[in-house]
């Protein structure tokens, strides 16, 4: 039998190398790659939309620097360009909304992760945790002490609730295939969700929550990236809205 050089494998496994140092550096490399890939793909999509030539042409055809339509312009062409501009604006607004939604969801995931981590830390110090939990329960219910069984049940419920929310937030898109080639805004939403949530759970799965710092770093970077994209998109959107408003005036003159 010939010998292999490395440990190529399929299907992809969570842990590949037994040597912890090798495994750690592999994980780091994979994470850097994923982060770069997610950010790169999102940026490419947004850039492509913003650089759309048709959009620039539409604006140019609709009015000059003084807000007047060019002389001898064909009315049909004017109307079609105006519609195009309007459509682009709707599309951009949808993307901006998607980004905002992603931002909110990322925030929520981070919050839940944080809560789960503190819950976990408390579990490791059981006695302390019991006392804290009971104390907080007593606080909530005045001076009535809760029976230990009820305390345990409540604790389970809290954990289950956190888990449910984590799962729900980690899997917003169960099967993205069906979303392909539907209406543009919906497609864009599904792309955005795919970009962020298809990749995030790999780093955020509770089973491999060995290193919460790493996960937070990943989330923080993703949040920053989305915030930057959203900022760029919003400023472009405002600009576009101005154009559409001035185009409205142009159209009114024709009507």
């Amino acid at each position: 039998m010939r010998k292999t050089l490395g440990q190529v494998c399929y299907p992809r496994r969570e842990q590949v190398f037994e040597d912890p140092e090798k495994e750690a550096s592999r994980r780091l490399a994979v994470m850097q790659f994923r982060r770069k890939q997610v950010a790169g793909k999102a940026r490419a999509h947004v850039d492509r939309i913003l650089r759309e030539d048709g959009l620039a042409r539409s604006i140019e055809e609709l009015h000059d620097k003084q807000g007047r339509p060019p002389p001898n312009v064909n009315l049909e062409s004017l109307v079609s360009q105006y519609r195009r501009l309007n459509y682009q604006q709707v599309w951009l607004s949808t993307i901006a909304r998607s980004l905002e939604e992603i931002l909110r969801e990322l925030d929520l995931v981070r919050f839940l992760q944080d809560r789960a981590a503190s819950e976990e830390a408390l579990l490791t110090r059981k006695a302390e945790r019991e006392a804290l939990f009971v104390a907080s329960a007593v606080d909530r219910r005045g001076d009535v002490e809760l029976p230990p069984k009820l305390v345990a049940l409540l604790r389970q419920e809290v954990k289950r609730d956190i888990r449910r929310k984590e799962v729900r937030n980690a899997n917003p898109v169960q099967d993205r295939t069906g979303d392909y080639y539907l209406s543009m805004p919906r497609r864009m939403q599904s792309i955005m969700k795919f970009l962020f949530f298809e990749h995030l759970p790999e780093e955020l799965a509770p089973d491999e929550a060995k290193d919460p710092d790493t996960r937070y770093r990943f989330l923080f970077d993703a949040l920053t990236e989305v915030e930057i994209l959203n900022g760029e998109l919003q400023s472009n959107l405002y600009e576009l809205q101005e154009y559409v408003e001035s185009a409205d005036l142009v159209m009114m003159r024709y009507e």
């Binding site: 190529v8 992809r12 090798k22 550096s25 790659f33």
Partner: peptide, 9 residues
């Protein structure tokens, strides 16, 4: 190559 773990150390 990432997915199939083609890493050199």
């Amino acid at each position: 190559p990432f997915n199939c773990n083609s890493f050199a150390f």
